[in-house]
Nucleic acid binder design. Structure first.
Lengths: 351, 351
DNA sequence: GTGAAAGCGCTAACAA
DNA sequence: TTGTTAGCGCTTTCAC
């Protein structure tokens, strides 16, 4: 394409600052990076020049000079479900493209809902070879402590999908799960319209903060806005499709008038398989989580009425951007990093 | 934060290629940039080295050396509505941050729904000072032609919010508006549940492709899935709150049993003002477009039942990323650039 | 046709 | 405490 070289009012560079402040490049660099060993008076001189010239640092040039390489690690639960596969796919995809931006991304998995295994994995991270870690897992004291250690060694940490607010993680990357549960409840109530009856909630594990939060939000709105609907105790599926498929028949057999099902965690495959083989007398309104090939198909053929989702690609990209920003001590754009609570109906499925 | 300098299997550079191919840096550069004046046999030698080493070019370094500056222009309709304000805000925000990435972003406005004015504005673009243009406006032959001229001069062009597929624009950045209309219809139908009656559609202009597409999708799903609801002819509000407020009373007075309103374009302020002052005997289900302070409030107090939206920040960022990718002839990530059809209910409003 | 060398904006040894 | 200098990966004169 076209040319487009510099021409306009030139952007000031470190050289300009050095000239104006009557110091050397090295000193400018020290001030810019807040390195010690510069007299206060000199710092002020330089800062004044920076302000006067309206200098903005060229990060690309800085990174080039530094020879900086970012090394990030994702630690994910080893569950056999589509959402995790999606996340792993996106990590692999992004890893390929980010190489050209001097960023190496890898991931490991640890047994799901196993705080000790997770804590050990976090503790086992080689802090000399890792700049940032993204953790998707339960919130327990051991996990919290291992995160503290990581942070103490200068590794940036983000919690992914399920927050660990009690820890010293730098940020949480994921949706507001209470709001997600509330959203599910609102859809459930409105779609059910005047119908009354029981609503079954499938959850993953009581250990998972995201699952608990969804349930919390769901119950709250159901109780407030739709008192004619009765929400049953949760069925814990541990995000495992096979387990869910085994548990469901019994539960459904012992409950009458199930007019709605809120599948609030992963493992939709089990729910779908059960519904397709067993069949129910009358199809309940079903709201599920996470847009995956299976839930997509279920939405398409009318088995699911709505899917609440979070964009796996966005999660991964956001985690990486944030880990980088933390390390570089560079500002982040909150609007860009906010993970939205996506609602998918049959008609707004992405191509 | 921590160190993190290079250490692992080094990424090959132009120097490595030069060494392996036994040529000079300049020759490697000529081949890399497909510049003429290199013997075929030499080109092959270099390309083999590139392939053997698995070389990937460091764009940041390349741009630094080139002194490249990207200059982008947004051309927007001059309408007095919140959605446009949002877009302008995001352009300003992004412009600030992108300066450090050698990217200058500006924007101008032209009279809305005025194809000639738009075509003139596009033709008036200084192609020697502009690398990319994002156009938000109607699709007409004159607009199409002016876009062709721009492209012929090596300027990359994206259509924004409303596509101009007949033109030679490089890409469209925005939602699938047919799908958006279908989504609105599905929500309308399900929220109205067993109720029958008339549904009023507020649109912007017959000139606007996005508005036409939304109407198309809406009608299709309403007719197919909710035949007990009768969709009325569109009311053209030209995205102008004041005009909408003036037109509404008459229309509503002459139609009975309006059980739903689909506000498919911009200018919600007018609709809201009318409803709040006039008040209706029974509140219809209202589905509107674009999440803005006003529609947000309307969702919060129950006036609106759902809002279909597209993220203005995402639109702007995506347009810029794509214009850059086109100029650099660099790949884009379709998943990241896809603008989602967001559905907002009272419960999933962003903070 | 090809190469040597300077330089983009910034950082980091090493000297002074 | 401050400055000199080389160099990151790539492009670009200007010679040969």
């Amino acid at each position: 394409m076209k040319a487009g070289r510099e021409n306009n009012p030139l952007k000031p560079t470190v050289n300009d600052i050095a000239r104006v402040a009557r110091v050397s490049l090295a000193t400018v660099d020290r001030v810019l990076n807040e390195r010690p060993g510069v007299r206060k008076i000199t710092v002020e001189k330089v800062n004044r020049a920076i302000a006067d010239l309206g200098y903005v640092r060229d990060t690309a040039a800085a990174n080039l000079a530094r020879g900086r390489v970012y090394r990030f690690l994702f630690i994910l639960p080893a569950t056999n479900n589509e959402f995790l596969s999606l996340i792993e796919d996106h990590i692999r995809d992004l890893a390929g493209g980010m190489l050209r931006e001097r960023t190496r991304i890898s991931h490991i998995t640890v047994p799901a809902f196993d705080p000790m295994a997770l804590a050990e994995a976090i503790s086992a991270v080689d802090v000399t070879q890792t700049d940032g870690v993204a953790v998707f897992g339960p919130e327990t004291p051991s996990v919290r402590d291992s995160i503290s250690t990581l942070r103490a060694h200068g590794v940036s940490v983000v919690s992914l999908v399920s927050d660990i607010p009690s820890s010293e993680r730098n940020t949480y990357v994921g949706i507001d799960n209470i709001a997600a549960g509330r959203t599910a409840a609102q859809l459930m109530g409105r779609f059910l319209a005047p119908v009354a009856g029981n609503v079954l909630v499938l959850t993953g594990s009581m250990l998972a903060r995201d699952h608990l939060e969804r349930r919390l939000g769901f119950d709250e709105v159901m109780a407030r806005d739709f008192p004619h609907l009765n929400v049953l105790a949760s069925l814990e599926g541990r995000d495992d499709p096979d387990l869910i498929e085994r548990l469901l028949p019994d539960t459904l057999a012992h409950t009458d008038k199930v007019v709605g099902i809120y599948s609030s965690a992963a493992g939709n495959a089990g729910l779908i398989r059960h519904l397709q083989t067993a069949g129910l007398d009358r199809t309940p309104v079903i709201i599920a989580h996470e847009l995956t090939p299976l839930s997509r198909a279920a939405l398409g053929n009318g088995l699911f009425d709505a899917v609440i989702s979070q964009d796996a690609g966005h999660l991964v990209r956001s985690a990486v951007r944030i880990m980088r920003a933390v390390i570089d001590d560079t500002p982040i754009n909150p609007a860009q990093e906010r993970i939205r609570i996506d609602i998918y109906l049959r008609e707004n499925l992405p191509p």
